[in-house]
Deep mutational scan, measured.
Amino acid sequence: TTTITTTNEEDARRIATEWKNKGYTVHVEKRGTTFRIEVR
């Protein structure tokens, strides 16, 4: 599992989409101002 964190919502969406397009399972969680993107 790879975890990526960013405070930028646009980055979070872009990163999540990129990983999904590669065939990975992506889970995005917002904690306060931080977005945690888990890639499996």
Rank of each mutant, 00 (worst) to 15 (best):
W19C: 03
R31Q: 13
I15M: 05
K20L: 13
I37K: 00
R31F: 14
I15A: 03
R36D: 08
V28E: 02
I4D: 01
T34G: 09
I4C: 11
W19P: 00
H27Y: 12
T17D: 13
F35R: 02
T2K: 13
V26N: 00
R31C: 14
T6S: 06
T5W: 15
T34Q: 13
A16K: 03
T17Y: 09
T7A: 09
I4G: 01
W19M: 07
T25K: 09
G32Y: 04
G32C: 05
R31K: 11
E18I: 10
N8R: 06
D11V: 09
R31P: 02
F35I: 12
I15C: 04
E18R: 06
T1N: 09
T33N: 15
T1I: 15
K30I: 09
T6K: 03
Y24I: 02
E38C: 14
T7E: 13
E29Y: 14
T6Q: 02
E10P: 06
I15N: 01
R36N: 10
D11P: 00
K22C: 09
D11G: 04
R36W: 15
V39I: 15
T5R: 06
T34S: 11
Y24Q: 01
N21L: 12
T7R: 08
R40D: 08
T34P: 00
T33D: 15
T17M: 14
K30W: 06
K22H: 06
T2I: 15
H27L: 12
T25H: 14
N8G: 05
E38G: 03
E29H: 10
R31A: 10
Y24C: 05
R13V: 12
G32M: 03
E10I: 09
T33A: 12
T5E: 13
K30Q: 11
A12V: 05
K22A: 09
F35N: 02
T1Y: 13
T1G: 10
V26F: 01
W19R: 01
T6W: 02
E29A: 07
K22Q: 08
A16E: 08
Y24G: 02
R31W: 13
T5C: 14
R40Q: 11
R36S: 11
T6F: 05
A12P: 00
D11W: 08
F35G: 01
E18A: 09
T34L: 14
T7F: 10
R40P: 04
T25I: 14
K30P: 04
V28N: 01
D11F: 09
E18V: 07
R40K: 13
R40G: 09
N8S: 12
V28P: 00
T33E: 15
I37P: 01
T3M: 11
N21S: 10
K22P: 00
T17E: 14
R13K: 12
H27G: 04
K30G: 04
R36H: 15
E18M: 11
E10Q: 10
G23K: 02
N21R: 10
E18N: 07
T7D: 15
A12Y: 03
T2E: 07
G23W: 01
T17H: 10
A16Q: 05
E18W: 14
V26R: 00
T6M: 05
T34I: 14
T25R: 09
E10C: 10
I4Q: 03
R14H: 06
T2A: 09
K22I: 05
V28Y: 05
D11I: 08
V26E: 00
V28Q: 02
T6C: 13
R14I: 07
F35L: 05
K30A: 07
T5P: 02
E29N: 06
T25N: 10
F35K: 01
N8V: 07
R14T: 06
R13F: 13
K20G: 07
K20R: 14
T1M: 13
T5I: 15
H27N: 09
R14L: 07
R36L: 15
D11M: 10
A12K: 01
T3R: 06
T6V: 14
G23L: 02
E18H: 13
T33I: 11
N8W: 04
T7W: 09
F35M: 04
F35W: 15
W19Q: 03
T3C: 15
T3V: 15
T7Q: 11
W19D: 00
N21G: 07
E18T: 06
I15R: 02
T3K: 05
E29S: 11
E18Q: 08
R14S: 06
T2C: 15
T5A: 05
I37G: 00
I15G: 00
T2Q: 11
V28F: 05
R14W: 05
H27D: 06
H27R: 10
V39F: 04
R13A: 10
A16T: 06
R36Q: 13
R13Q: 11
V39G: 01
T1D: 08
I15Q: 03
K30V: 10
R14Y: 05
I4H: 06
N21D: 11
E9P: 09
R14Q: 07
A12E: 00
A12N: 00
V28H: 01
I15Y: 04
E9G: 07
K30L: 10
I37M: 02
E29F: 12
T1C: 15
W19E: 02
A12C: 10
K22N: 07
K22W: 06
E10W: 10
T2Y: 14
K22R: 12
I37Y: 00
T6R: 03
I4F: 15
H27P: 00
E38Y: 14
I15E: 02
E10S: 09
R40W: 14
T6Y: 03
T7K: 09
E38N: 08
R14F: 05
E38D: 07
K30F: 08
K20V: 12
T34K: 10
N8P: 01
N8I: 06
T1A: 10
R40L: 13
E29T: 14
